[in-house]
Amino acid sequence: MSAVVSTVTKRRSSLLSIVRGSPVMGPLAALILACIFFSFKTDRFLTGANLSLILQQVMVVGTLAIGQTLVILTSGIDLSNGSVMALGGVVMTSLAVDHGLNPVLAILLGILVCILFGVMNGALVTGIRLPAFIVTLGTLNIAYALTRIYTTETISGLPSLLLFFGNTFKIGTTQITYGSVLMLVLYAITWFVLRSTPAGRSVYAVGDNPEAARLAGINTTRVLIGVYTTAALTYGIAALLLVARTGVGDPQAGQTSNLESITAVVLGGTSLFGGRGTIIGTLIGALIVGVFRNGLQLMGVESIYQVLITGILVIAAVSIDQLSHRK
């Protein structure tokens, strides 16, 4: 993955060429600078507890962003992920609470619902060759409506198994959420798959040029359906993490998650035109958003400024990407 797309040049004369050297460097530099800034501004920022909290706060959007990265790498986009996650979360909680189903089965069925949406997205994108934007705009509304038809009630009183990933364990004196660890593990797996498996290579190839990929012997239909389905699996896992984090099944959840996950992907240096980007970048992108939100709040800055800064960061990230690829 990242190794695949990095253009290793020996040009180190300017900031831009450093960014060009590795697509992760720019976002990483931004993250480190933000961390340094906030640790000077507030003594509560650079504590294990707070950093663990940031990780916990990005675990839902961070997990959604894994799927979003896969989709964007194929030059698609997935607007439906937040709604699909909300549906999955409501399904798994209501099955467990209202229908008394075995929690493990309830979780699996919730994730399965998400996966079905992924298959549907993939089938529409490849079968009828509709633009991903349109398809997922449609499934966004379908999932949203189904959630509301299914229940308007927030589901609480969950069995402990559904809350497991919200629990913590201690490293030293720092409490770490199991969910954050799961998210990091998912990133590691995705990183490996993109870098070291034929499927991962195919994702980049299809994103770069679908016709060239087909003529190179790649089954582009299978790759795309696989990508949308795998992405939906991450949405299902994100649903489980959301449920564990908030302790309820919330039919109103995830309404802005699609844009938040796209923000993380873009901040991480992945091109919306497909074929170029890294999963580690996305993790960094998600952390950047989390660090700013947390740091500004600790400083007592109003949350509307977090939105403002996120907007500026997105434009800055894309501009740097554009400039660094201009000759």
Binding site: V4, S6, R201, A212, R276
Partner: peptide, 11 residues
């Protein structure tokens, strides 16, 4: 139709 232009030589 031939190259994956923005991908490296080895890919």
């Amino acid at each position: 139709q031939g190259l994956l232009l923005k991908l490296p030589v080895f890919t």
